[in-house]
Nucleic acid binder design. Structure first.
Lengths: 255, 255
DNA sequence: TTCTGTCCCTTTGTCCGACAAAGCTAGAGC
DNA sequence: GCTCTAGCTTTGTCGGACAAAGGGACAGAA
């Protein structure tokens, strides 16, 4: 017969974890604001009363979580986690779970349509200017699949940004990061791919400017369906995404 | 005048980072499969030819990224990153970016509707059985806001799972984790909240079983609108989410 | 004046060696 | 066959050490 629960489990986290938790708490509840210095490792040694090795392990945890960074001079300071970095962890996880391009496509359809709807409704002049700038650059590199794919990825980030919804911005990022490397392959393989891509972007900006929701959704769907058709020429939608990811991961590491 | 960029920055990653990268590469490209042991720290010291402290810093990075874990006996092994753990990093980031409940609500509306559409289309018998089980437990705790909120969170995880789309599953998680703690507050504050919540779940399961997409979407919208109305009774949608998060983070830490 | 080279101090990245606590393993004893 | 105990291994932590690199101050050169 199990005894009645008299005691709660004791918190026996290792010291490095407690260090990380303590610093995280101060950042999340705002006592340490993004940009504030954390102090040197030696400072933390004094404050927490543990060895420097222990402090350093705790710092690694926070660094990987995106809560703190080292600036050019390697000093520690708190920072706002960057969506793209966090999303790359998720992308990696999706790869390990061997998600298929079909899943990626379906989710992206939902998320990109939601993005454009938000953008049509709430894009500012600045947002539109950024999109125009991106379009100009895309047109200049329409013959270079790698550069064009990069522009395309940035375009959709800008659309999401224009939606003024950061939750959406973050939610779409992991799928988009896995999409992106395939775009280059597709544009390379499909003759009309580049110009069609740029044309779709032009229509999307136009829809945002005219606050024309129908047109925005329509062209987003077409744009993604183009991607899908291009993809189906080179592989099955039920393929999982490992190989595409490996290239992308290498590129991210160079950044 | 700035000089033209002639050279690229040299890759001078510290040793602990290289250790982490090397192990990550082996896991992502599948040479180390989830569940495989990584070896002891001493093994890694021999293989990489660096000090144990350096190895340990690399291990912390991978651990935080969810790629490796220590089992009950603290031995290292590779593992599939868990969505809920990764998502909690994103939730934390959203809090730090001070997203509003309006953003959360909008994004969730999109993501939950997409989930139910997928579930209506592709839910298996097992998925429906899990949902039924969840409903039964929800009915049993309808008077206990904390337990009911927990059941509600699980219900929506199960719906997303039934959509058979893991990208969607992952994309909705961060927003859902921030939603969850508010549900308890709302159910506590609104007399009819509990029963309405359970009724909505019942209609949703019914829609999934009958493959009735319209009904699924309709009841998902109503369910979320209920949440919104409840929330607006206690706070403005334009509030950001810190305070709600703090409670949730503490609960997560106990887990 | 503005740039460059130098010296010094601080900080980080890495290494070495050490030890207690907790898990695992293999016999000893029943 | 089972339990128990004495090792051995592994992790978490500690203390101290040192080279490399950054920052700052300062002197000298163009």
């Amino acid at each position: 017969m199990p005894v009645a629960p008299l005691f709660r489990p004791i918190d026996v986290a290792p010291a490095y974890q407690k260090v990380a938790d303590a610093i995280e708490r101060e950042i999340v509840n705002g006592r340490i604001k993004p940009g504030d210095p954390i102090g040197t490792e030696h400072d933390l040694v004094r404050q927490f009363g543990v060895n420097r090795s222990t402090i350093r392990e705790g710092i690694r945890v926070l660094e990987e979580g995106g809560l703190i960074r080292r600036d050019s001079s390697r000093r520690l300071h708190a920072c706002l986690p960057r969506y793209s970095k966090l999303a790359s962890r998720l992308s990696r996880a999706l790869v390990l779970h061997e998600v298929t391009f079909r899943e990626l496509y379906e989710a992206s359809m939902t998320l990109e349509v939601a993005s454009i709807e938000g953008a049509v409704e709430r894009a500012t002049e600045d947002n539109i200017a950024e999109l125009d700038d991106n379009l100009a650059r895309s047109e200049a590199v329409v013959g270079d699949p790698a550069m064009l794919a990069e522009c395309d990825a940035e375009f959709h980030v800008l659309v999401a940004k224009a939606s003024q919804n950061r939750v959406l911005q973050l939610a779409r990022e992991p799928a988009a990061q896995l999409f992106y490397p395939t775009t280059e392959v597709i544009v390379t393989g499909v003759a009309e791919g580049g110009p069609r891509l740029v044309a779709a972007h032009r229509h999307l900006i136009d829809a945002i400017r005219r606050r024309d929701r129908e047109a925005g959704v329509l062209w987003t769907r077409r744009h993604l369906q183009d991607w899908r058709r291009g993809f189906e020429k080179i592989a099955s939608l039920d393929r999982s995404v490992e190989h595409m990811y490996m290239e992308h991961a290498q590129a991210a590491r160079r950044r």
